[in-house]
Design a protein around this nucleic acid. Structure first.
Lengths: 143, 143
DNA sequence: CATGCATCCTGTAGTCCCTACAGGATCAAG
DNA sequence: CTTGATCCTGTAGGGACTACAGGATGCATG
């Protein structure tokens, strides 16, 4: 089990949270400013004090961002899990719209992987006198 | 063969180029401003006149952007295909670095697709009272 | 106790890659 | 000759950060 340099019981400073979740300190403050993240409690000296709930939300945001959701989409997703608990149908709508997106990105990336791999292979060590760089262009033409 | 509403022989206006390649007019001018695209010739009245060469470059940029290269990377790739024709090794370096990137994104997306598909299925029609939204979070934990 | 360095604070400005708009000029059609 | 589409330049806005200025604290050490 990973020892998590704990402050007290279950509270972190912004710096700890940042390291813990892998999100830049500036970005955490930015999320707070734009209300992606609830404003945390403050210690006597005015420093932000986070608990596991905030960490969980931030991790969710982080992961969702990595996966290509916009902050607006994430906001919507978070709201669905929140106090109002909107209908599952809404989640379904957001998620399936995004799924379509993801699937098309996925197929693009698969193609790209092939093209890149081929390019890399062909150019392998500077042997070829003129590189097939611009071929990437033509490779993508729908025939 | 697709008829390409041709102006004269092989020259397009910015609007034609835009439609042809699928890049916003504003974006084309932006690319010119930041020197991604060479400044094209101008007609007597001061309008941009593009030929197939520019179209080719723009298509290359468009495709590369779609595929996730940054403009800086594309600039580098273009330079390699240009008059100086640097070594293929350079292309190899850029492309393979990007390939690594692409592969990791790809695996994330594959995971996401599964999670989303499952979420969509579980939430199927608003039946379930509490949605597994935040489960997306935990599903992504490296175990 | 003083010094130093890390961490925190607020606030503003910069980055990347566009996108939109204002305020005109010009063209082709009716 | 008027209308509407297209073009021009230039500037400002937007999303999602990221960096920096200018301070205030906290913590360890001599």
């Amino acid at each position: 089990m990973p020892a998590i340099t704990p402050s007290r019981a279950e509270s972190f400073s912004i710096g700890e949270l940042s390291k813990h979740v892998g999100v830049n300190i500036e970005t955490i403050r930015y999320y707070e400013r734009i209300k992606m993240l609830p404003a945390p409690g403050r210690s006597a000296n005015g420093r932000r004090v986070y608990g596991p709930a905030e960490a969980r939300i931030l991790a969710f945001i982080r992961r969702s961002r990595d996966l290509g959701f916009t902050l607006e989409e994430i906001r919507a997703l978070l709201a669905l899990g929140g106090p109002e608990r909107a209908s599952c149908a809404d989640v379904h709508k957001i998620a399936s719209a995004h799924l379509t997106n993801v699937r098309s990105k996925l197929s693009d990336l698969v193609k790209l992987e092939a093209i890149l791999a081929e390019t890399v292979a062909r150019c392998s060590d500077g042997a070829a006198p003129d590189c097939p760089v611009l071929d990437i262009l033509d490779a993508g033409r729908r025939g």
